[in-house]
Amino acid sequence: MIEVRQLSKSFGGRPVLREVNLTMEEGKTLVVLGRSGCGKSVVLKHLIGLLKPDAGCVLVDGEDITGLPERKLTAVRRKIGMLFQSAALFDSMSVERNLAFPLRELGMTDEREIDARVAEALDMVGLGGEQMKMPADLSGGMRKRVGLARTIVGRPRCVLYDEPTTGLDPITTDSINHMIRRLQRKLRVTSIVVTHDMKTAFHCADRVALLHEGRVHFDGTVEELRASKDPVMTDFIEGRSGETD
């Protein structure tokens, strides 16, 4: 459904991505691994045209979106939901209005239906009944889950999750992992999960890609990942920095 070809991007002369190639299949989950600062969020932002590549292109349903002006990207963006790493809640709006926002933008006007969809999405992330809270009054983990609810409330065909479980407790992490899997199984949502949490990776992934020094160092199935003897891979999976006390 989404294809990334030879994507390169630098910031201020410093290359972050160098000729990245990735393919996301319809209805499947791709997990993108990589250390902090290696450019995972930058990859996601390219997929919906929030950033423009220096070279290479992004195809969504076969259409090259890299040259599209901002207003022409709306159609693509409505197919794809994105959970930002920082959750990016609108801090002038209550939780309820944050969730209703994308629905209204999609053209929904029936308030009863909007309320029902908002409640349903909040239930899915375990925050039923928190409609009236303001983002400033939520903990980091709760903000993340509200962000998640806002991402899925419009029922996009494809969801980009930027570190959906980072900073959450193990129980919530597990329930989010199940939710990602459930959405994919039941609603055939194409998912891209950026994470450095191996549990999330093993739980959710159909395919796994590892970004390392701006390139795709590994791209394969979970079984291939487990079987890999590559030191970069094994260090990452087992969390070894190579340092000693």
């Binding site: 932002k45 919906i48 929030l50 901002e70 207003r71 990207l73 709306t74 159609a75 963006r77 409505r78 794809i80 939901g81 994105m82 930002f84 790493q85 920082s86 990016a88 809640l89 609108f90 801090d91 926002f101 994308p102 933008e105 419009g154």
Partner: peptide
């Protein structure tokens, strides 16, 4: 503030200019 906390990007991601 909206710019640096990615709220502007969030708007864009929902197709709102």
């Amino acid at each position: 503030t909206m710019k640096v906390t990615e709220q502007v990007d969030a708007l864009r991601s929902m197709g709102v200019h």
